[in-house]
Simulated assay, not measured.
Amino acid sequence: MSWSDKGQQVRGLLLKTDWYLCFGIVFLLCVLIGLTTAALKLNEVLNDADALPIEAVAIKGERKYTADAEIQVALQDLMQRSFVSADVNQVQKALEALPWVYQASVRREWPAKLKVYLVEQTPVAHWNGDAWLNMYGDVFDAPTKQGIPSLPLLTGPEEQGQAVLTTYQQLGELLTINGFALQSLSLSARHAWHAKLKSGIELELGREDNMARIQRFIDVYPRLASQDKKVGVVDLRYDTGLAVDWDDAQKESR
């Protein structure tokens, strides 16, 4: 075979190889285009609220202060999304932003339902007049609702909510087992405690030894009650004794 024949044979093989290569590249491009188109179409369908709407939201958990209407308003914008594109974390945040919701958990249930479990705030005290303390001592702001029981009035520096609640519970338990009821407790900016009983008696407790001073009041109260006067304020900020302001004396001085 001459060099000319060999050259023609090589050129034929190269042309054939180029043809296969071009065909392979075109086929690969067609496959890629097809996959991209399918992915875009699938993404469009998954994000189409008309094609895959959220058909229902099931709310569970005991609710006293959060109405269905409040939940509907909170989820109004999110419900315009498709079932797949709805972000459950955003749904959770929207629900937990409601004033009386303490915690919310959200999960999808195929084919088109969101399941929500709500835990409401449990108020245990009024805090600084216009806020509340929950059972964990956390401060939260929420409007007053019907059905909220009578709660103690607690006041103090904003960051001391849990400490004031804990002290209230400790003092309240000691007073209750001895026949008294604690109505309010306040902590001043200088960390001095002031308590008021439901009977109207006020107790100045100072900065320390609260339990011991409450016990001193309990021990001496029978003697105070035997007087033909009404107890107004009992100052227990002494190491061993106490001072009494009689309610009648206060009225006479006014």
Rank of each mutant, 00 (worst) to 15 (best):
D77S: 12
D87M: 08
F83A: 05
A67C: 09
I71M: 11
A97R: 10
Y65C: 06
K93M: 05
V88P: 06
V91C: 07
A69M: 13
L98H: 01
P99K: 08
A97Y: 03
S85F: 01
L95K: 03
D68I: 03
V88L: 11
P99R: 09
D77A: 13
K93R: 15
V73E: 14
N89Q: 13
V73P: 03
L95P: 02
D77Y: 01
Q90A: 07
Q80D: 05
T66Y: 07
D87H: 04
Q72N: 15
Y65D: 04
L98K: 02
E70Q: 15
K93C: 00
Q72P: 01
Q90L: 06
K64I: 00
A74H: 04
M79E: 01
D77I: 03
E96L: 10
A74S: 07
M79D: 01
A69C: 09
D77N: 10
Q80A: 06
Q92H: 04
N89G: 14
L78D: 02
P99N: 07
F83H: 04
A67W: 13
R81S: 08
Q90V: 00
I71S: 06
K64M: 03
T66R: 08
A94F: 03
E96N: 04
D68A: 14
A69N: 13
L78Q: 03
E70R: 12
L95I: 09
V101I: 11
L95G: 03
F83W: 11
Q80P: 02
S82F: 10
V101S: 07
W100E: 08
A69D: 13
L95D: 01
Q80F: 00
A97N: 11
Q92V: 00
S85K: 14
V84P: 10
A74D: 03
A67Q: 14
K64H: 12
F83C: 02
T66L: 07
V73T: 15
T66E: 05
D87N: 15
T66D: 05
Q72L: 13
